[in-house]
Structures are given as C-alpha cells and as structure tokens.
Design a protein around this nucleic acid. Structure first.
Length: 513
RNA sequence: GGCGGCAUGGCCAAGUGGUAAGGCAGAGGAUUGCAAAUCCUUUACCCCCAGUUCGAAUCUGGGUGCCGCCUCCA
C-alpha cells in the first residue's frame, strides 16, 4: 500500500501518483497578512507541514519524493488597507510586520518554510498577463475599471465544491455589495482586477490603476512558479468555495489543462462548536497561546491527534491532555541524547532509508500504513507512543540516578526509530522552548496553563551545597521520625523548584525542576 | 433553500462487515513514614428506530442533534 489522499474533487481517497515520478509540486494557500495568525492557521500549516515531511521521508515506500512547496502571501487586500488606515501606517508596513510575525510563529511551531513564498505585489506582471489572457479568450470582461471573470462561460464551474449555481442562494452569506453587483453580468462573476478608489494605493494596468482580486494571484503564482498543472493544491476547507473554485475556473480557462490533480482541505478549528475566525472574534493567536506557557510541540501534538479533515475543537482540557502526552514522548525522545555516554549510544542517527530491525519493522510499517491512509496521524501517533513506552520508562529510571542495564542499552535502535518517526511529524524536543511571543499580540485572554514547569527556575536559587545540606537535614529528621520537619523541608525545596525522590534503601536524590 | 461533513468510554480521538488503537483523566496494586515521581494492571456493546447479512460502530432507509460553505476566511 502506498499513499492515498482524499481528493476534494472526487470526495474519495485516491492513490497518490505524481505527474513526474518521485517529484511532487505543491501549492498551499497562504495568509492575508493583515493580522497575526491564530490557531486555525496553526492547524492548517502544521498538517501540511506533516504532509510535506512525510513525502520527503526516505522511509516512504519507493523512497523520498522531491517536493517543491510554494506558498503565497496575500499582501494587498481591503483588510490590509483598512488596518493600515486604522493604524496610520502604509499598506506595506502592515504586511511587512505581519509577514515577520508569520515567520516567527511558524518557525516556533517547527513548520518548514516553503521553497518559495511569492507575494502578490511582487507578481503583478504574471497577474496582469493572466487577466489579459482571460480577457482575450473571452472568459473575462472589463467594466468601469474593474475586470470580472465570467463564470457562466466556464464549463464545469462548481466541480470542486459540488455546486449548481442556479440553486445557490445568491448573497446567502450577506456580504455582497450592491455597487459591484451592478457591474457584473452574473451574480457569481468575481473580480480579477479592481479599479482603485480615490486615495487607495494602486498599480498601473491596461484597465486603469487598481489592484488584483483575491483569487487571481494564486492562479498566476501557480503558473509562474510551478506550471499549468501541479500535483497537490492545499488549503482550508473554508477556501473550497469560492476561492479554489475560482482558481480552477481562471487557470483552466487560460491553460485548458487541469490546475491541480489532488485538492486537499483541512478541517476548521472550532471553539465551543463554532469555527474559530477573525470575524467571530473567538480566536486565540499562536503567540498568545505560546506566550501563556504552552509549548509548540504540545500544540503540534494537539493538532495531530485529530484527523486533518475533521473539525477540531480547541479546549484547555484538550491542550492539557496534549501537554501531558507530550511530556512522556519528549522524555523518550530526549533519552538518547541526554544519556548518550552512559548508554553508549551513537550520536549520529542511522540512515532513515535503511529498514529497521526485524523486531521494530512492524512498528515502522504500522506507522507508514497509517500515514499512507490519508495521513492518519492519530494512529501514527499511537505507534509513536507504543515505541516510546520502554524508552520513557528508561528515561525515568535514569532521571533518578539508576544505571542502565544491558537490556536498556539494547534499546538504541528503538530510540533512533522513534526520533526518526517523530521527526516525520515534526515533533522535536529541542524545539519545545517557548515561542516568539514577547509582544502582547492580540487575541483572547488565556489563563496561564499548568504546563510551564521549567519556566525560568530561579537562576539565583539554591546552590548544590545548600540543597545537599537541606536533604541531609531532612534525612536526619526522618531518622528521628520527625516527619513534620521532614515534610516541611521537602516543601521548602519544592518551592525552590527542587524535586526530591526517595528511593528504596533510604537514598534520596534531588532534581532541579 | 442548495451542497458537504460529523455523532464511539469521564474528556479527546482512531477504527468503514468479523466481534472496540492511542493519549489524558480515574481506579487497583507495587514502592513510600506519608507523599511525589515511577512501574504494572484495569475501565465502552459505538445517538435513536427499522432493515440487509451467518455476523454491523462499520452497509441501506428513516429520525434526532451538531457543524462548515453558498463571493472576508486556514
């Protein structure tokens, strides 16, 4: 069995075969940079990051794919203009700030940067050329400085979203504008070029000064960066209609070829059963969450425990569960590096393309089968927990000063496989140190989570000698059966972030939080 | 009104015909002066009704509830 993906075009799982053997071209719809990213964006880019990592994984049946991943920034749009006006900034300043913030947030989440990240304002030549071509072919018409795409001229319009235009309730979302409607031949026609209103930033064009419509930039960028037909097109489920439908219409009207062979869409992040979105105001920004002490890997785990196509309800309880789960996984992932010398394990990871040992192969295969089945990360994670169990136990024993046995040393290849497979999901313990969020960036108020145990544990705290002394005092108290004093000393140390572990034989070890 | 999706243990979540992964929480046990930490063990007839089948959480029909989209959206 090899990779199968649910294609929105067919609404079925299809065997994935790229256009060119072992190469995959991917376009992912990026963000409109008028504000900070929230957890909905985080989910989307986490799951697509996993898709990309999985395709690039040499342990893949048939070997790694060479992936080309393109993602855009929409840096011209009404919302950016509005934001700029509110804040007294130039449009470019608003988008520049938010692009910086985007990279900070996504880097913190260990999301690999795309190979190419075109901005709409830097692709105007391609955009204008595409519009001109559509107009020339009769698929578009201009009206008062605007240019519209004529949906009725495009056979198959609606094929992605499964819509029959005659049965749609026009304006059902309550967001249509009267002035624009008057210029359109058909209510579902959409703007390729919008003539500039007075005082707005604009770019020259054969139709007068203005700016591109939202959908056209993606069509132009795909063509410019990847060609007429790509393998995979990604985006949130909320983009299926109209955005992706319109992309298809534009691109296919121009080229006469299919725009993308596989269309993948991720489910929404919900809050209390409702979609998290800017307009509803129920969003939490990524940096607000990371700033509250949630580790990036906890968020990753939280997202990947659900299937990417299903809605995911964001709750504090769910996040706490993910934090506990991550603690265990992280312990297992760290063990080889933290105790490398003690265990006598190699530092360099084995070649991921080489097959694991007989004993580990079933685990690797189940992981791969799960991922092949439309990226079933929930099951894949289950396998990771399975792999991690004895390593976690080992980590805990080493943590309290026990020495490894021969059987423990033999876990090396298991550890290496775990590190490798966790890496396919982008789960890396050394990335867990906080996010980028120092600025108080928007979003809802979050109660501090229980998680951040390792938060700046009093650098000027107790020295080793002082701790030893207190531990000795407690030992004496215990010997005198003065348990009240012993417990007080233990609590006192705990307040300083020092954990005491009593082992059999009256030995007490202490650990800094 | 149209299109699409979802409903599994206390919470989250896999599983699309053969008798319920995993995580979190809980319980019991080991250990402990007691804890903590850790280790071991353990907890479900799958929204309702009818049907197909030797057999259904899984298929069909009906019902109920919830969600997304119908030109701002990841």
């Amino acid at each position: 069995m090899t990779l199968r993906l649910t294609n929105t075009l067919s609404r079925a799982k299809e065997l994935f075969t790229p256009l060119i053997d072992r190469r995959v071209s991917i376009y992912c719809c990026g963000v409109t940079v008028y504000d900070l990213c929230h957890l909905g964006h985080a989910r989307s880019y986490i799951v697509w990051d996993v898709l990309r990592r999985y395709l690039s994984w040499p342990g893949q049946i048939g070997g790694a794919y060479a992936v080309t991943f393109v993602q855009n920034f929409t840096d011209i749009d009404d919302k950016i203009l509005n934001r700029a006006a509110e804040q007294g900034l130039a449009m470019e300043e608003v988008s520049e700030r938010n692009i910086d913030a985007y990279f900070q947030d996504m880097d913190a989440l260990n999301i690999q940067r795309a190979d190419s990240m075109p901005r709409a304002t830097a692709c105007l030549d391609s955009i204008r050329a595409l519009i001109a071509e559509l107009e020339h072919k009769g698929a578009a018409y201009s009206a008062d400085g605007d240019v519209y795409f004529s949906v009725m001229k495009q056979a198959g319009y609606g094929k992605l979203s499964g819509r029959d235009l005659s049965e749609q309730q026009e304006g059902a979302s309550g967001r249509t504008s009267g002035a624009e409607d008057a210029r359109k031949h058909h209510p579902f026609d959409f703007a390729l070029w919008k003539g500039a209103k007075l005082g707005e930033p604009s770019f020259p064009s054969p139709w007068g000064p203005g700016r591109p419509g939202w959908h056209i930039e993606c069509s132009a960028m795909v063509r410019q960066e990847l060609g007429d037909t790509i393998d995979i097109h990604l985006g949130g489920a909320d983009l299926i209609f109209p955005h992706h439908e319109n992309e298809i219409a534009q691109s296919e009207a121009a080229s006469g070829k299919p725009l993308a062979r596989y269309w993948l869409h991720n489910g929404m992040v919900n809050v209390g059963g409702e979609k998290m979105s800017k307009s509803l105001g129920n969003f939490t920004t990524i940096r607000a969450l990371l700033g509250s002490g949630v580790s990036p890997m906890t968020l990753r785990l939280f997202v990947l425990q659900a299937h990417y196509r299903k809605p995911l309800d964001f709750t504090l309880e769910g996040l706490e569960a993910a934090a506990s789960g991550w603690k265990g996984l992280a312990g297992a992932l760290d063990v080889g590096r933290k105790h490398q010398e003690l265990l006598g394990w190699r530092s360099s990871p084995p070649d991921p393309a080489s097959p694991p040992s007989e004993a580990l192969r079933p685990l690797r295969d189940r992981f791969r089968d799960a991922m092949d089945d439309d990226l079933n990360t929930a099951v894949a994670l289950g396998e990771l927990f399975e792999l991690a169990r004895p390593l976690r136990a080992l980590a805990n024993r080493l943590r309290i000063g026990e020495l490894p046995s021969e059987a423990d040393r033999a876990l090396e290849s298991r550890w290496q496989l775990l590190v490798q497979l966790a890496g396919v999901l982008g789960l890396e313990p050394d990335r867990q140190q906080g996010g980028s969020g120092q600025e108080s960036g928007g979003g809802g108020e979050l109660p501090a989570l229980v998680e951040g145990t390792s938060r700046a544990a009093a650098p000027a705290g107790l020295g080793d000698a002082a701790i030893e002394a207190l531990v000795e005092q407690r030992k004496a108290a215990k010997a005198a059966r003065d348990f009240a004093s012993a417990d007080r000393l233990r609590d006192q140390l705990k307040d300083q972030g020092i954990e005491l572990v009593d082992k059999p034989g009256g030995v007490t070890v202490w650990l800094r939080g």
